[in-house]
């Protein structure tokens, strides 16, 4: 099928970007969205042009490195699907597709569709862990955790750190990302004792990185490939306020 593309091109973080138009005549329905971009890039390179730079690695929906806005929606039209798992059968012959990077003040563009998401790493660095050194661990079964709690912790731990929640939020808030880690560790006895310190550090870091505030539009959960629940945010707010009072 024939696909028209309008792709955001930007040489580096300092340059001004803009849309550039391309047309592909030989797109197969079974192609993944990224394989469609690969096809375009081979054509560009053969003409001596710079290919469209985009982030990707595992191409099976788990590493969290891919992610672009497709027709204004993070990761495109399918629910709970990363960009690499989206296939061209979701589009029709003759369609025009707009492709842009995830946009947020805390995600500067590196080139074209590639962005810098190290701000998310910084949030984890500020406290998203259990403070245990190698060698200190007790025998695993001395920390019993009911199946229900373990499964709930997993639901929060499933976040792949792609940043779609930030890109989908009108305030560019990282509340869903941050709260998912806070909730996972708060639910588990191993992480619980550090909650007070952790939640304050991580929320402060989130603000320092330039992410906006959460105003409960819940757009983040809608576009999240892992369907991380906004209830995590409610828990983060509760824990944050509790810590502020108790500290």
């Amino acid at each position: 099928m024939k696909i028209h593309l309008k792709i955001w091109r930007q040489k580096d973080s300092q340059s001004k970007g803009g849309f550039k138009e391309y047309t592909l005549d030989d797109v197969h329905q079974e192609m993944s969205f990224l394989e469609m971009l690969d096809t375009l890039n081979i054509k560009l390179v053969k003409k001596g042009e710079h290919p469209v730079e985009f982030d990707h690695d595992c191409r099976e929906g788990i590493c969290g490195q891919c992610g672009v806005m497709i027709n204004g929606i993070a990761h495109g039209p399918l629910k709970n699907t990363t960009t690499c798992q989206l296939h061209m059968r979701s589009f029709k012959d003759g369609d025009t597709i707009y492709v842009e990077p995830f946009k947020a003040a805390a995600f500067p563009v590196v080139r074209d569709l590639k962005i810098n998401r190290s701000s998310l790493d910084h949030i984890i660095t500020s406290g998203g862990y259990v403070s245990v050194d190698t060698g200190q661990a007790p025998e695993a079964n001395t920390i019993p955790i009911t199946n229900e709690i373990a499964e709930a912790a997993f639901d929060s731990a499933a976040c792949i750190g792609c940043g779609a929640c930030v890109a989908s939020c009108k305030n560019s808030s990282a509340a869903l990302f941050t709260s998912a880690k806070i909730t996972q560790l708060e639910l588990l006895p191993q992480g619980k004792k550090e909650t007070r310190k952790r939640v304050v550090a991580m929320v402060n870091q989130m603000e320092e990185e330039g992410f906006g505030h959460c105003t409960n539009t819940e757009a983040c959960q809608v576009e999240c490939p892992e369907d991380i629940s906004v209830l995590n945010i409610a828990r983060m707010n509760y824990e944050y306020n509790k810590s502020k009072i108790l500290n």
Partner: peptide, 13 residues
């Protein structure tokens, strides 16, 4: 298994 559990890895229970 001990180390990962202590870190908060949500193994099946």
């Amino acid at each position: 298994i001990d180390q990962a559990t202590a870190q908060g890895v949500p193994f099946a229970r």
